[in-house]
Design a binder for these strands. Structure first.
Length: 261
DNA sequence: ATGACTCCCAGTGGGAGA
């Protein structure tokens, strides 16, 4: 089984890239972030024509998430949009269960950016992280086979940052954000990427500016966390840089995890 | 260099992203 996450930075702009990627990477589930589409504009017909069914949850201009699975597969069940009990005007979370009630729980999330420590947006990021943690705690109890993946907007460690000195204490790299990432791990989740030896300077995002991709100056902020019971089945996890080389690419690359059946 | 690019909604500029 393969599961993946990708921040597409506008699904209307990136739909051709997405269809190309899906054709070459027939995953069992893909979560998208930053679709930037209201629900009435979600391209479900184009995806269906390519063999993919979807659940989606979006808004105008910002945010927006989706969960894609092959049309031949059973539809995800118990689909949840945003964090239950957490009032939020922003569309950031979509969850569904694959393979029936005792199957794999997939949570796709677009974590808040947070702008800068001390701002209202940072305070919102922290509140959102606290709400996510308490919800995921109960979700793992209900669904031991759980994966939490998406654009976390947190670089967990200095090795996930191209210039840790320049980024010290900056957004994505603050102690407070990193402590929340560790809190998620404390729920019994594991960073699938770090279960394996990886090349140094592995990033999932590169700024559009400054020739950052060409110079490989980026951050690893897109993650796949797997629960204890899934961890034993994980056989690989990689970042697919190929779509970042395309014309008009997203600034993020997909992350893919492979699990033994 | 408080930049650099890209997206969006707007509307001939500005906010947000990371």
């Amino acid at each position: 089984m393969k599961l993946a996450t990708w921040n597409v930075n506008s699904l209307s702009v990136r739909l051709p890239h997405l269809l190309t990627w899906l054709a070459a990477n027939p995953v069992d589930a893909l979560v998208l972030q930053e679709t930037k589409l209201t629900d009435d504009k979600f391209p479900h017909a184009e995806l269906a024509a390519a063999g993919w069914q979807a659940a989606w949850f979006g808004q105008k201009t910002y945010n927006g998430v989706a969960l894609l699975v092959p049309a031949a597969q059973g539809s995800p069940t118990d689909v949840v949009r945003n964090i239950p009990g957490f009032e939020d005007e922003q569309a950031r979370v979509i969850a569904g269960t694959l393979g029936g009630a005792d199957g794999t729980r997939v949570i796709g999330a677009y974590f808040p950016n947070g702008q800068a420590p001390g701002t209202d947006k940072f305070a919102y990021k922290i509140r959102w992280l606290q709400a996510l943690e308490s919800w995921v705690r109960t979700e793992i109890q209900a669904h031991p086979q759980l994966v939490l993946m998406g654009d976390f907007n947190i670089a967990p460690d200095d090795r996930d940052v191209y210039d840790p000195v320049a980024w010290a204490g900056q957004i994505h790299c603050t102690d407070e954000e990193r402590a929340h990432f560790r809190s998620l791990l404390g729920l019994g989740l594991h960073d699938a990427f770090r279960l394996f030896e990886q090349a140094p300077k592995s990033w999932s995002w590169w700024d559009y500016r400054n020739l950052a991709f060409r110079k490989n100056q980026g951050l690893r902020i897109d993650h796949i966390l797997v629960s204890d019971s899934l961890k034993t089945r994980v056989t690989a996890c990689h970042i697919d840089k190929e779509p970042r080389r395309a014309d008009r690419p997203s600034d993020h690359a997909p992350v893919v995890v492979t699990l033994a059946d």
